[in-house]
Amino acid sequence: MAKTKSKSRHDLTKRVILYAILIIIAVIMAIPFIWMLSASIKADREVFQMDPFVLIPKNPKWSNYAKIWTKIPMLTFVKNTVFLTIVVTLLQLFTSSFAAYAFAKLRFKFRNGLFLAYIATIAMPWQVYMVPQFLMMRSFGLNDKLLAIICLQAFSAFGVFMMKQFYEGIPDELSEAARIDGMTEYQIYSHIMLPLSKPALSTLTIFTFVNTWNDYLGPLIYLKSVDKKTIQLGLKMFISQYSSDYGLIMAGSVLSLIPVIIVFMCLQKYFVEGVASTGLKG
């Protein structure tokens, strides 16, 4: 009796410590975002006011959120980024799951060699080959075209690697049985594999979406005209021109975060499961 009591007290202190740690971490994670939200509705001189620090100013400047659309062609940037992100994500999902199926479930000549080519490039920083890549892309007439970013982002080795790990976790018996039933490989892929890969696809969607949405160096090199630029470039351009308009910069930053966060919230249900099943954990 006494033992369980002391145990439960022990558990209680443990829980208190646990929650204390959790709250500290949550605060560290959240503070920059809270600051961002708070600064986005402040006037420039209020932003750094510390004594006293107010979270929501007396007269919140909601106008910052309206002004940012007219100060820079934000709508164009948003349109470009949305277009790029959606196309890249779809292409990535389709082509890498398609290729990964072959790598995981079919035997063919040069399979290992081809897969090794994918793996080797994961360790290769993009900056190592961005110059030759640029020259080649431009010779294809892709310079200053949104298509360039699509070509750049849509065929990543990482996607293939991830999906292959996932498909390898699906028992072979499943596809063997289908083959005996006379299904073609394409049917097996679309009727059996694809419906099973929801968690993996969700995970890949999050990774690709986040990467494409937030990419900076790629668009910097390829997209020159203002009407082709993405949100990240636009935001950076705005910061260098209006460095002291903190309220506006923060409002722009908040706007740039919203879509990614929505996508993440929608897909996070599958997220941990997806990572677990793709064998990314090793």
Partner: peptide
């Protein structure tokens, strides 16, 4: 969990300026 994933999701341009 969601909160701790925020920094990864946030764009570098926005987050570094904060």
């Amino acid at each position: 969990r969601t909160l701790s994933f925020f920094p990864y999701v946030g764009s570098l341009v926005a987050v570094t300026s904060v």
